[in-house]
């Protein structure tokens, strides 16, 4: 059994104040290991985004603990949490959150710049990951000149550029059409396996099920179930994407 890279232990999270107070997570236990794509599924308002934020050290739990590579986050300052994020965690958002004034290449470079990787080598690395997600011919494009699927692939490149052990994605396919949604899921699956990272994706989308190694279900702030997909089954779309990558770059 591999050592978990990210663990949540009895995580409770209260959000809001006074009459608007909501207990979004009511004692969640979850651990993620490398080499797996885990899907987090559940109805709207069940606490998926909240859990993702806590796992990503963006929010801190009201009680319980989160451990990143075995290191507890309890009592850490916002600056220390930021350091954990830049060392270990990559994020992918539903609405991409790219910088509109930066090109695809620069969007990736800034994520490297933030962790102190600058200069020519950083530029090389940014180009490498963009090629890896099939955008070798879109390096200088600005987000407004990229399709939704391409933008999300830039976001994926940005998330993996610094080689984090964990990639967290909140509804990465929700804004994409079917074809692009499949492409992004295939990419995430490949990142988990080929690059041996732990990937957790929140999703509503049943089309994404085929890519999962593991599906975790959450309802009303509690984990209610978990399934594992039998090993050795390959989604046809993975082969598809590989073909397209060859054409592109």
């Amino acid at each position: 059994m591999t050592q978990p890279v990210l663990e949540a232990e009895n995580v409770v999270k209260e959000l809001g104040k006074g009459a608007g107070k909501v207990i979004a997570l009511k004692g969640v236990n979850l651990s993620l290991v490398k080499g797996e794509l885990t899907l987090l599924m559940g109805p709207s308002g069940s606490g998926k985004t909240t859990l993702l934020s806590i796992l990503g050290c963006i929010l801190t739990p009201t009680s319980g603990d989160v451990r990143v590579e075995g290191e507890s986050t309890a009592g850490k300052s916002p600056e220390q949490l930021a350091e954990l994020r830049r060392k270990h965690i990559g994020f992918i958002f539903q609405s991409y959150n790219l910088f509109p004034t930066l090109s695809a290449l620069e969007n990736v470079r800034i994520a490297l710049d933030v962790i102190g990787r600058k200069g020519y080598q950083a530029a090389q690395r940014a180009e490498e990951v963009l090629r890896d997600v099939g955008l070798g011919n879109r390096l200088r494009n600005y987000p407004s000149n990229l399709s939704g699927g391409e933008q999300q692939r830039v976001a994926v490149a940005r998330a993996i550029a610094a080689s984090p052990s964990v990639v967290l994605a909140d509804e990465p396919t929700a804004a994409l059409d079917s074809e692009n949604g499949h492409a992004v899921m295939a990419l995430l699956s490949r990142i988990a396996k080929e690059q041996n990272r732990s990937v957790l994706a929140v999703t509503h989308d049943p089309r994404t099920l085929g890519y999962a190694d593991r599906v975790v279900r959450i309802e009303d702030g509690l984990i209610v179930g978990e399934e594992r997909r039998p090993q050795g089954l390959d989604a046809p779309e993975i082969a598809d994407l590989t073909k397209r990558r060859k054409v592109n770059g």
Binding site: A82, F93, N97, I110, A111
Partner: peptide
Amino acid sequence: LNEFATLRALGSSSGY
């Protein structure tokens, strides 16, 4: 502000 929040999520220090 959204971009600064994104930077922060990506782990930038506030100094950055």
